[in-house]
């Protein structure tokens, strides 16, 4: 508001005038007063008569209007629902189309992390005697499972090289966020 006032001199003048008018001026001057009187010819007669209600549309007309408005609303609703469902189908199509990409990215991150864990373990435990990577010392975790059989690690082993507090902090992330 203030920049507008400063930019336009007319508005600025009007504001100044308003301020001047609203100021309380005290004078010694005699101010002529005007007696407040009734209008010429006197006041109008007060109407004591009852004002009847204007006639309302009949029951048939009301019912007809109800039917008309209802079907008009239904038509609008169905048009809107058609549009909404078409949008939902399109969104679902987009999700379905993106799912392989997202799954592939997720699996890539998973395998990269497992590789990183493997390298970190090999680097960390190289001086520990009898330690083999992926085993409990020289004993395999599952003795009868073929070593080439893929086994997903448990979550705590996936986070084994991280802060324990971080793992416990994020463990329930999917179920709380």
């Amino acid at each position: 508001m203030l920049p507008l006032l400063l930019r336009s001199p007319r508005l600025l003048l009007a504001a100044a005038k308003g301020l001047q008018q609203s100021r309380n001026v005290v004078t010694n001057r005699l101010i002529p007063y005007k007696q407040d009187l009734p209008p010429v010819g006197g006041y109008a007669e007060f109407d004591w008569n009852r004002i009847p209600q204007r006639p309302f549309p009949s029951h048939n007309k009301q019912f007809l209007a109800f039917i008309l408005f209802t079907f008009f609303g239904l038509i609008l609703y169905e048009r809107g629902m058609f549009r909404y469902k078409a949008q939902q189908v399109e969104i679902l199509d987009a999700k379905v189309a993106m799912q392989p990409l997202l799954f592939a990215e997720r699996d890539r991150l998973y395998l990269r992390r497992i590789r990183r864990n493997y390298e970190a373990e090999a680097e960390l435990m190289k001086d520990v005697p009898d330690w083999e990577v992926g085993k409990w010392y020289s004993e395999p975790v599952y003795k009868t499972v073929h070593p080439n059989h893929w086994l997903d690690p448990p979550e705590f082993e996936y986070w084994a090289h991280c802060d324990r507090f971080e793992y416990e902090k994020w463990y329930h992330w999917w179920y709380s966020a």
Partner: peptide
Amino acid sequence: LKEKYLHNPELHSYGAP
């Protein structure tokens, strides 16, 4: 050892419902 811990794994990479 220089770094005490590795960085956290990506949260959506494993263990999600």
